[in-house]
């Protein structure tokens, strides 16, 4: 039951997108998302839609994956679309029935917001599909490392993230074990009212918590034995190096986003 929680949503692959430097990918994703919001004409959003489409093709990510990450957002999508479509007063009324009026502005805005949100999700999902959680953490750590000079605990946060990533599968496995152990003792977790089911969780959470603390203690000991003393003086085996593909990727994305932003301001 817990098996289908995949962490992040990494889709292993070998495409140039997968191989790109995580730092560059993060920065470009941010740029892309920002530029989406600076465009106010749906016509100019055709370009990012095509761009994202091509990127998904290059990365060989099946469309159903994208649909899966869009699914939880469907209510929000419908809500905003309806709101824009029916309740935004415009200059020309295209359609009117009872209290509902669809104006030209409403229609445009609805389309704009819809495309924006879909592109936003598609773009940021692409980052997590093509970057393993560990590479993502690594990229974030290195991007934020200048903040370390301001006493911001960048290394500690990144270490915490990667340990969390390392232990989530282990803890999930453990939760399953505890659940079957409690079920074997007659615990009933599937039926009953919400309160009853919440109560049934207590005998699972407590042993899980206890074991997590024990693990944390042992892990800290093992890390100390392996000469861990915080981020100071630490080197890394994997050095991130920029390749030609990073340059090309950046160039294309920057030109596209720059164009979108420029047009957005001009019009």
């Amino acid at each position: 039951m817990l098996n289908d929680i995949t962490l992040g949503q990494y889709f292993p692959g070998n495409s140039p997108l997968h191989k790109m430097d995580p730092r560059i990918k993060i920065l470009l994703t941010v740029l892309f998302v920002v530029s989406l919001f600076l465009v106010s004409d749906p016509l100019f959003l055709i370009a990012p839609v095509i761009f994202i489409g091509i990127l998904y093709l290059i990365a060989r990510i099946p469309v159903r994956f994208l649909l899966k990450s869009l699914k939880p957002l469907i209510p929000i999508l419908i809500f905003t679309t309806v709101l824009n479509l029916f309740f935004l007063p415009g200059d020309v009324t295209l359609f009117s029935f009872w209290v509902i009026q669809i104006s030209d502005k409403g229609l445009l805005n609805a389309i704009l917001v819809l495309i924006r949100i879909v592109c936003l999700i598609a773009g940021s999902s692409l980052l997590t599909y093509t970057t393993s959680p560990i590479a993502l953490t690594d990229g974030i750590e290195r991007l934020l490392s200048p903040l370390g000079k301001l006493k911001f605990p960048v290394h500690d946060l990144a270490m915490m993230m990667s340990i969390a990533l390392r232990f989530i599968p282990t803890l999930i496995e453990e939760t399953e074990k505890i659940m079957s152990a409690q079920k074997a003792r007659g615990a009933d977790m599937e039926t009953g009212s919400l309160v009853q089911r919440a109560k049934a969780l207590v005998p699972i959470l407590i042993p899980l918590l206890v074991s997590a603390f024990r693990r944390a203690e042992e892990l800290a000991l093992a890390m100390e034995c392996r000469c861990y003393r915080g981020g100071e003086g630490r080197t890394r085996m994997k050095q991130l190096k920029l390749h030609l593909r990073d340059l090309w990727g950046s160039l294309i994305t920057v030109i596209l986003c720059g164009g979108m932003i420029a047009l957005g301001f001009l019009l």
């Binding site: 393993s132 390392r166 890390m223 392996r226 000469c227 861990y228 085996m237 050095q239």
Partner: peptide
Amino acid sequence: NQLVATVVEEDVAFAPENMGVPP
């Protein structure tokens, strides 16, 4: 409870990284 990293080679690299060994 003694493996730190999500990838085997990264885990083995953990101690020398802490010691400041060159990449």
